[in-house]
Design a protein around this nucleic acid. Structure first.
Length: 222
DNA sequence: GCGACAG
DNA sequence: ATCTTGTCGC
């Protein structure tokens, strides 16, 4: 048993191997989702507490139309590659408290751009059945060439002979983000959705609003 | 064996 | 993720 876990890392890996075949890599996903959800988690400095937040935005206006939070304890120690086991329980609890059902999940972390092709975005997608994409700030696996400096430019993220995602420039001249498919979404559509969610900042409005919410919730919980 | 390693 | 001061720039 690893620290703060509900199981061993071997068991967690087994769960990933078991759920990986359930990822839908065929569905292109909604071209024009009505609503898009952002999910993020904030930790207390000691690491004892965490707050998970979900914000649902109107995909057209990017206004927040629904949101929910859940405060709890990390369900697993931080292990790169097993990240989902740490945040999933709290994220699912927050999703349950939502009044609306979002058409797309934008996760703070990777999807297929994962050692076993089953990152947080895949896990969340399979468990909820909703289309999901992963947007990471830093890479976990893969190699890539720097995309051209203009917004919208991208380069393939390759790992072990697979294209597992795209390194996307959401702002001209600013460090790119790592986009990968989670569930029921094509990589091209995932890219389009992320660009639609980044009219001004590097990170999607969904993650920005969720980030603010879980930080505030954590501050209010302590 | 030695690094790298989502948040 | 979180700990942290100043600093450059719009």
């Amino acid at each position: 048993m690893s620290p703060m876990s509900s199981g061993s890392w071997q068991e967690a890996v087994a769960v990933q191997e078991e759920l990986r075949p359930l990822v839908d890599l065929v569905g292109p996903g909604p071209a024009a989702p009505a609503t898009v959800a952002g999910l993020d988690v904030a930790y207390e400095k000691s690491g004892e507490l965490l707050a998970a937040a979900v914000t649902v935005l109107d995909a057209r206006t990017l206004a927040v139309v629904d949101s929910a939070v859940s405060v709890g304890r990390p369900a697993f120690g931080y292990v790169p590659g097993l990240f989902a086991f740490r945040e999933l329980p709290a994220l699912l609890a927050a999703l349950d408290r939502l009044t609306t059902l979002p058409a797309l999940l934008v996760c703070d972390g990777h999807g297929l751009a994962h050692p076993r092709r089953f990152g947080l975005a895949c896990h969340l997608g399979v468990v909820t059945g909703l289309p999901a994409i992963g947007v990471g700030k830093t890479p976990l696996v893969g190699e890539w060439a720097p995309p051209p400096i203009e917004r919208g430019a991208w380069s393939p993220l390759r790992d072990g002979g697979d294209v597992v995602g795209r390194v996307l420039r959401t702002r001209a001249g600013v460090k790119p983000v790592f986009v990968s498919v989670g569930h029921r979404m094509s990589l091209a559509n995932a890219t389009a959705q992320v660009l639609a969610l980044t009219p001004r900042y590097r990170l999607p409005e969904t993650t920005r609003t969720a980030d603010r919410l879980c930080r505030d919730a954590l501050a209010g919980a302590v």
